[in-house]
Design a protein around this nucleic acid. Structure first.
Length: 269
DNA sequence: ATGGTCCCCTGACCGC
DNA sequence: TGCGGTCAGGGGACCA
C-alpha cells in the first residue's frame, strides 16, 4: 500500500498525537508479521516517545533507549485510538500510552514489520538505503553515475532502494511519464539531462502526493481515517486504455520487473 | 555486483 | 449467491 507519501502522511498524522507520551504497555495480538515481533520491543515501555522519524518507508518511534522500526508493507496502517475501542480483525499491535490512547497497527496481509533497534540507521534493513528523494545529493548527475553500465529497465532502477528510497510502483510510473522516459529503457542509456528531468519529476510527484494526503487505491487511510486524494491526480497509474493527458495516445499497461507499469508509448521514449 | 524470479498473506473484484 | 481465478501500493531471499 504505502509509498513514501503515504508513510509521510502517516508520520505527520501520528507525531502530534504520540510524541512526549509515556508508553505504559504493549499489546501484541499477532506477532507473525513479516518477521516475528521481537521481545525487545518491550524497550518502549516506561519511557515517552521522543520523536517520530521516517527513513525511506520505515517509521521510527524513538525513545532514549533506541527505536521501534515500523514498516507498513503493502497493507499496513496506523491509527491513534482510545484503548477502549475494541481491536478489529488484523489489528495486530497496540502501543499503549498513559492517557488512555494507543497507537494501533492494522495490517491484513502481514507484509509489514515491527522491530526494535538501539541504532536504527545502522540496522541491516536501513544501512544500505540510498538517499531520500529530497536530499541535495539526489540529482541528475547522481542518477547518471549510479546508472552507468546498468542494463535493467529504468523503472526497476528507480524503484531500487539502494539508488533512491521511497519511489514505489505508483510514483515510478508517474515520474517516468512526467519526465517522458520509457519505463523499459535500460537505465544506463538515459542521458544526464533526462535524469535531471526525472529527478525533478520524482520530487514534484511525491510532494504533490504528500499535499493530497497520499494515494488511496483501495484501502489506504491516514491516521485520521481520511483516504488520500492523489488518486484523482494520477496521470497514468491505473489508466491503461485511457488517453494520455499529454498527447492523447492510448496508455498501455505492461509488466516490468514483476510489477504493473503504466506508460504512454508515444510521449515516453 | 547485477538482474531475474519467487514468495510471504488477505481481500477485492470480475466473469461465469 | 457462490466459486475460482487474478491482481494488489513492498521488498527480502535466493539463484545464475
Amino acid at each position: 500500500m504505502p509509498e513514501l507519501p503515504e508513510v509521510e502522511t502517516t508520520r505527520r498524522g501520528i507525531e502530534p498525537l504520540i510524541v512526549g507520551k509515556p508508553v505504559v504497555a504493549l499489546d501484541v495480538r499477532e506477532k507473525r508479521l513479516r518477521w516475528p515481533v521481537p521481545a525487545q520491543l518491550q524497550a518502549l515501555i516506561g519511557l515517552p516517545i521522543s520523536a517520530v522519524r521516517r527513513r525511506a518507508k520505515y517509521l521510527l518511534l524513538d525513545n532514549e533507549r533506541g527505536s521501534a522500526i515500523i514498516h507498513l508493507g503493502m497493507s499496513g496502517s496506523l491509527r491513534v485510538v482510545a484503548t477502549s475501542v475494541s481491536p478489529q480483525r488484523h489489528d495486530h499491535v497496540d502501543v499503549v500510552f498513559d492517557d488512555g490512547t494507543c497507537l494501533r497497527l492494522r495490517d491484513p496481509r502481514r507484509f509489514g514489520a515491527v522491530l526494535w533497534s538501539r541504532q536504527p540507521l545502522r540496522h541491516k534493513l536501513l544501512r544500505s538505503l540510498g538517499p531520500e528523494p529530497f536530499d541535495l545529493e539526489f540529482d541528475g548527475a547522481y542518477l547518471r553515475s549510479r546508472a552507468r553500465g546498468r542494463r535493467a529497465a529504468v523503472k526497476a532502477f528507480l524503484m531500487d532502494s539502494r539508488v533512491v528510497v521511497g519511489v514505489g510502483n505508483i510514483y515510478a510510473s508517474e515520474a517516468l511519464h512526467a519526465a517522458g522516459i520509457h519505463p523499459r529503457r535500460p537505465a544506463g542509456r538515459v542521458s544526464q539531462a533526462r535524469y535531471e528531468a526525472l529527478c525533478e519529476a520524482v520530487r514534484e510527484v511525491l510532494s504533490q502526493a504528500i499535499g493530497f494526503g497520499g494515494t488511496t487505491l483501495r484501502d489506504f487511510a491516514s491516521p485520521d481515517g481520511e483516504p488520500g486524494y492523489f488518486r484523482h491526480a494520477l496521470a497514468v497509474y491505473g489508466r491503461a486504455g485511457e488517453p494520455c493527458l499529454h498527447c492523447g495516445h492510448t496508455l498501455r499497461q505492461e509488466t516490468i520487473a514483476q510489477r504493473s507499469s503504466f506508460f504512454c508509448p508515444l510521449c515516453q521514449r
